[in-house]
């Protein structure tokens, strides 16, 4: 028994050290999660408490559940050569991308409808303006889905599919998470509508600016993904 145990143990470690697939992905994924939580809880130096925890919990839940939706969005096409069939159809690759993107957005919206009330109840949060909350959530939804859908197609054939997709998507979405959590903190009443600092703490943050930033992020990544999708799926 010891001989077998030793042989398999050494084999597993040697394979990982030679191929170096799981460990770097694991380490970077862990670092990214810590980093995103740290930034989400620090945006504009809000104090601690329920709003900060709630905003961070909400975005983390969206990111990881969104990843689940996106990962399966192209996994289903791998069987029976479905992807080849899609590519052979007289369609622009951009059209395939847009259809997949919309499907992922719809899934994530249904998910939001369930999880957002849960976060509001669990953290005892009061929302200043439901219309604005929906706007922020939908903008976040579009950003998460646009990047995720593009790279979902890219990582399908890899061994560490889900983990690889998460680090790619999390690192690209990091800049959006900063204004996104800022906007939620304003809506949860943890931050004033407009903050203007001075001196060494000079920073400009306001709710409209955060929404405008998310809009710009979504526009850049949706258009870029739509244009580059053909390159990703081409054989």
């Amino acid at each position: 028994m010891w001989l077998g145990l030793r042989a398999i143990l050494i084999k597993d470690i040697v394979v990982e050290l030679r191929a170096r697939q799981a460990l770097p992905t694991m380490v970077v994924l862990g670092m990214l999660i810590v980093f995103i939580l740290r930034i989400a809880s620090e945006s504009a130096a809000a104090g601690g408490g329920a709003p900060v925890m709630g905003a961070a919990a909400l975005w983390i839940a969206f990111l990881f559940s969104g990843l689940l939706a996106q990962e399966r969005s192209f996994a289903a096409e791998q069987h029976n050569g479905c992807m080849d069939g899609l590519l052979l159809a007289p369609l622009d690759a951009g059209t395939i991308y847009l259809a997949k993107l919309l499907a992922n957005i719809i899934l994530l919206t249904i998910f939001e409808a369930v999880v957002v009330p849960l976060v509001l109840i669990a953290f005892h949060l009061h929302v200043a303006g439901w219309g604005r909350l929906v706007t922020v959530l939908l903008l976040g939804n579009l950003g998460i889905s646009s990047v995720g859908t593009l790279f979902s197609a890219a990582v399908q054939l890899t061994r560490t599919r889900g983990a690889l997709l998460s680090i790619v998507v999390l690192v690209l979405l990091m800049p959006m998470m900063i204004p996104a959590s800022f906007a939620l903190l304003v809506l949860f009443g943890a931050l004033p509508e407009r903050m203007v600092g001075s001196g060494s703490f000079a920073f400009v943050g306001s709710f409209p600016a955060a929404v405008a930033y998310m809009l710009a992020f979504d526009a850049v990544f949706t258009v870029a993904s739509w244009l580059l999708f053909g390159v990703v799926v081409e054989e």
Binding site: A44, F201, A202, F203, Y213, A216
Partner: peptide
């Protein structure tokens, strides 16, 4: 740009 939402 996103960094301007954080104090410096």
């Amino acid at each position: 740009i996103s960094a301007r939402f954080i104090p410096d």
